[in-house]
């Protein structure tokens, strides 16, 4: 029983990270049709800037941690907004070329991170409480898992509130459904493009800081490895669906943890297998638009 609970919470923590990456990916794809390969770089930049903050201000207190979350999110958001404004926008409606540009950007960015911070993982320290565990039903859960879960839930709630209750949220929802009709109502949908990139970048940057605490280190490859699972999550959840991304993130991560433990480290294959099954029987994803 305690193993089950431990696996569940570890899975939820990992799922929280997947969600923070996948949320932006899914919104960006849903609204703009762009598969953003640079999303992992947003995350890595967030993780490194968060680490710099922790390193410079003495990494083991809560204020530093909260500050690093904020700075990481802002760094991710700025990088993402820059990407949309300078690179993506020039290639309006050229989806594949937009993908290619993000591929080039992710190559260049990861190489630059290599150059600045080195290729080896750098280890990170958080508040002492992170290293402690909490007892739930006999399982000793590392506390950093809870932080990831809480943060992801807050981001999900904030995003849902934003999408439901603001004009831009409405434009984004309408744009995911039918972008050309939004422009045909006299709305400049490109502003919404910059906005979803910025939001997605902020979530990824936040995810980067949390991931560095979850894994205990930062490396230039951190973003890329999470990105691939985030891709799988967005396809399974249904491209463009925020709730789909949330459900699939948890499902994929928990499945991965259980398979890793009970099926001899086969978590990654089980996830790819799940992807294959979803594609065979429901190609538009769990909560995707059925067309």
């Amino acid at each position: 029983m305690s193993t089950l609970v431990l696996l569940l919470f570890t899975g939820l923590g990992l799922g929280a990270l997947y969600f923070l990456v996948a949320a932006g990916l899914s919104l960006i794809y849903g609204l703009m049709g762009v598969l953003n390969f640079a999303h992992g770089a947003f995350l890595t930049l967030g993780a490194f800037t968060g680490w710099e903050i922790a390193r410079r201000t003495g990494g083991d207190n809560w204020w530093t941690f909260l500050l690093s979350l904020l700075v990481g999110a802002v760094a991710g958001a700025l990088f993402a907004a820059f990407t949309e404004f300078v690179l993506i926008r020039r290639l309006y409606q050229r989806h594949i070329e937009q993908v290619l540009v993000t591929v080039g950007l992710s190559l260049a960015a990861v190489a630059l991170f290599d150059g600045i911070w080195g290729t080896d993982p750098v280890f990170i320290q958080g508040p002492a409480w992170f290293k402690e565990t909490t007892d739930i039903l006999g399982a000793r859960i590392p506390n950093d898992r809870f932080i990831c879960i809480i943060a992801a839930v807050l981001v999900l709630l904030a995003l849902v509130f934003f999408l439901k209750n603001t004009r831009y949220g409405m434009i984004i929802r309408a744009g995911v459904e039918n972008r050309s009709m939004v422009t045909a109502l006299g709305i400049d949908v490109r502003k919404a493009f910059t906005l979803v990139f910025t939001i997605g970048g902020a979530a990824a940057g936040l995810g980067g800081v949390l991931a560095s605490h979850y894994f205990g280190y930062v490396s230039p490859l951190l973003g890329g490895s999470l990105l691939i699972f985030a891709f799988i999550v967005t396809v399974i959840g249904g491209l463009g669906s925020l709730t789909g991304a949330a459900v699939a993130a948890v499902a994929v991560a928990v499945l991965q943890q259980f398979a890793n433990f009970y099926l001899g480290g086969t978590g990654d294959f089980v996830v790819v297998l799940a992807l294959a099954l979803v594609l065979l029987f429901r190609p538009s994803g769990l909560l995707g638009r059925t067309s």
Partner: peptide
């Protein structure tokens, strides 16, 4: 960083 230069070059070619 060779990949930085190649990545940047690639972006410029696409653009």
């Amino acid at each position: 960083e060779p990949l930085f230069i190649l990545g940047t070059l690639f972006i410029l070619v696409v653009l």
